[in-house]
């Protein structure tokens, strides 16, 4: 079996923007007050009364071609197990080049440590026997799908095979591994 390749998909048909995923992530990862690794975006398009509302739970896109990893001068930003984009706080100088390089603005500086922080796809869980992320576990509408793309029987491989989907800012050329189901 080939190496793991983690990915996530959010079902925009069922996500109601309740922010439970944000709270679960903050609790799971002990984030400082006022900071979040994931967030809810609502986009209203159209002209009244013909309006369309899309609600998305967003986070780091764990890009295959991650510009944050390329610009990091110390190797603190790196590609971890299963292709997850991670930050090693021991190597991070807080130069913020990775924050400037990320087209999704998915990174921030943890004021407690001065190091850069972001979504880890709950690597501490998924690489240690718990197959789900905290945001996925809490989602009351089961809108978040996560798993190994290289396992054709996984939930993520199945939904991406059967549902129309898209990635954010495809023109940025970063090849995200975070998808949105239409």
């Amino acid at each position: 079996m080939s190496a793991k390749r983690y990915a996530m998909a959010v079902d925009t048909r069922t996500c109601v923007g309740c922010t439970a995923c944000v709270i679960a992530c903050k609790t799971e990862n002990d984030l400082p007050d006022g900071y979040a690794r994931n967030w809810i975006t609502e986009i209203a398009t159209g002209t009244f009364p013909s309006l369309d509302l899309t609600i998305r739970s967003e986070r780091c896109n764990h890009c295959d071609d991650a510009p944050c990893v390329a610009v990091c001068p110390t190797g603190a930003s790196w590609i971890g197990p299963g292709g997850i984009v991670l930050v090693d706080p021991d190597k991070c100088t807080g130069c913020k080049a990775c924050i400037a390089a990320c087209p999704y603005d998915a990174r921030f500086v943890d004021p407690r440590t001065g190091t850069v922080d972001k979504c880890t796809f709950c690597v501490h869980r998924v690489e240690n026997g718990t197959p789900t992320t905290a945001c996925q576990d809490i989602c009351p509408t089961e809108s978040i799908h996560f798993g190994d793309l290289n396992d054709s029987d996984s939930d993520i491989a199945r939904v991406l095979r059967t549902r129309e989907h898209y990635t954010l800012l495809p023109d940025a050329g970063t090849t995200p591994r975070h998808y949105y189901l239409k």
Binding site: A36, T41, F108
Partner: peptide, 12 residues
């Protein structure tokens, strides 16, 4: 028309 709202408010 496109209106974008995000719940996020990360410093910096």
């Amino acid at each position: 028309m496109q209106e974008l709202t995000t719940t996020r408010a990360n410093a910096l």
